[in-house]
Design a binder for these strands. Structure first.
Length: 405
DNA sequence: CTTCCACTGGAAGATCTGGCCT
DNA sequence: AGGCCAGATCTTCCAGTGGAAG
């Protein structure tokens, strides 16, 4: 059989990009109240006075980032008709930035050309702030609003959140530029762990984004599906089921759209021209499994080694096992694969992390005097086959290097 | 109620990497 | 080159823990 023609159309999707995370929709259903609050909170900026700091909280996939993009676009458009205000928005996703220092360094780079970026380590802490303030002074604008998405990543190191909202007090003349912060977090406890001074300034205006319920999710799905799918392809039963599933579980629109995309993808591969609820059912475990797989792959080498040791114990029916037993198996694994081994304490930390993520199940035992207190570990709710596969590629690839020596 | 086991997990600091500045 | 800086990861040390046994 010869090659088929390349054909941009398929029977299912009109524009599958619409279902992706990067897509900003024109409408944000069921978020009218939040959008109104958001606009109100930005009023001081359009008036040309000192901005308020804004804090958005809500779980993942409930529209915080999308709302911010929409508001930002609207604001940028509206301010064109006024001479007295020229606000810049600087967006930074703090994913993987676990300290104020790194956030500040990344903010500096937001103002710089690609060939002029600074490195994110090596400077004394206050120099980073000095550099940041210099960039701000050089900026030709009346306001700058820093949007710090997933700001909870910085943990308890809240320096940046202390300094930024206060830099108009001493570092930067408000005549030059006003500075405001918009913090976005999906961790509800984050705000409470901040120093109270920081909390008060950052959360001047707090906007809460609740999870979507099934009905709201269906509205969102219908809207997106209109652009994403070829007309009449998406069966109503699929919409109902995706809405119910995502609504039940997380209230996350992102999750609903992931599901919808996967269902469509399955139908396309199957050569079908209707996406109905059976495809959604088929898609659900695949979407979930994919998430787990990605997370497993991202684990550091030491965690992979620990998993490998545990997997071996699992296969020889020696689980659940004490950390001591696992450690001994781990030492054997390291030797076998010619990797440097770490101390027991480190491996205990790894086990703890694995169990937090749910890859490992942990049960505390206490047999009192004579046998003491300890933990028993076994594989968590993960398919051992999948762990095998992943370890093969992550660890096994190193052993094949031997051939080249 | 006290003892005591066999770990657990917090704290502090060592070591290594990668980068800045003079 | 040498001093300094921050992050990441790991080591060392050890007080603390919880509950059955005594």
């Amino acid at each position: 059989m010869g090659l088929q023609q390349f054909d941009p159309t398929d029977g299912i999707f009109e524009d599958e990009e619409v279902l992706r995370d990067s897509h900003t929709p024109d409408e944000l259903p069921a978020r009218d109240e939040q959008l109104r609050e958001y606009q109100d909170a930005l009023k001081p900026v359009i008036k040309g006075s000192r901005p308020k700091n804004i804090f958005l909280v809500g779980q993942t996939g409930v529209g915080k980032t999308v709302a911010t993009q929409m508001i930002r676009n609207q604001f940028t458009e509206d301010q064109k008709q006024y001479d007295h205000v020229d606000a810049h928005f600087v967006y930074l996703n703090c994913n993987n930035l676990n300290s104020s220092y790194r956030v500040a360094a990344n903010l500096v780079n937001k103002f710089r050309e690609p060939d002029d970026k600074i490195n994110t380590t090596g400077y004394p802490a206050d120099e980073i702030y000095t550099k940041l303030y210099e960039e701000l002074r050089d900026l030709d604008a009346t306001h700058v609003m820093f949007i710090l998405d997933e700001i909870d990543n910085i943990g308890t190191d809240d320096n940046i959140l202390y300094n930024l909202p206060r830099c108009n007090d001493n570092k930067i003349d408000p005549e030059e530029i006003y500075v405001g912060v918009i913090g976005i977090s999906n961790d509800f406890t984050f705000r409470d762990n901040l120093r109270s001074k920081v909390k008060d300034t950052l959360c001047e205006e707090e906007i809460h984004f609740p999870p979507y319920d099934a009905g709201e999710l269906k509205t969102i799905i219908r809207e997106r599906a209109d652009d994403a799918f070829v007309d009449d392809v998406l069966d109503n039963s699929a919409i109902e089921l995706v809405g119910a599933m995502a609504g039940n579980e997380s209230g996350s629109a992102r999750r609903a759209l992931d599901l919808l995309y996967k269902a469509g993808d399955l139908a396309r591969r199957n050569g079908d021209d209707v996406v109905d609820e059976s495809y959604v059912r088929e898609a659900e475990p695949l979407v979930r499994k994919n998430k787990v797989r990605e997370e497993l792959e991202r684990l550091p080498t030491q965690s992979h080694l620990v998993l490998r040791a545990l997997l071996k114990l699992h296969e020889t029916d020696q689980t659940p096992a004490k950390s001591q037993t696992i450690y001994e198996e781990y030492l054997g694994t390291c030797e076998h694969l010619d990797k440097a081994s770490k101390t027991q304490r480190t491996i205990r930390d790894r086990l703890g992390q694995l169990s937090l993520k749910g890859f490992v199940a942990c049960e505390r035992r206490n047999e009192g005097k004579g046998s003491g207190r300890y933990h028993l570990y076994e594989l968590g709710d993960v398919d051992p086959e999948m762990i095998h596969e992943i370890l093969e590629t992550e660890l096994g690839s190193n052993t094949t290097l031997d051939e080249f020596n």
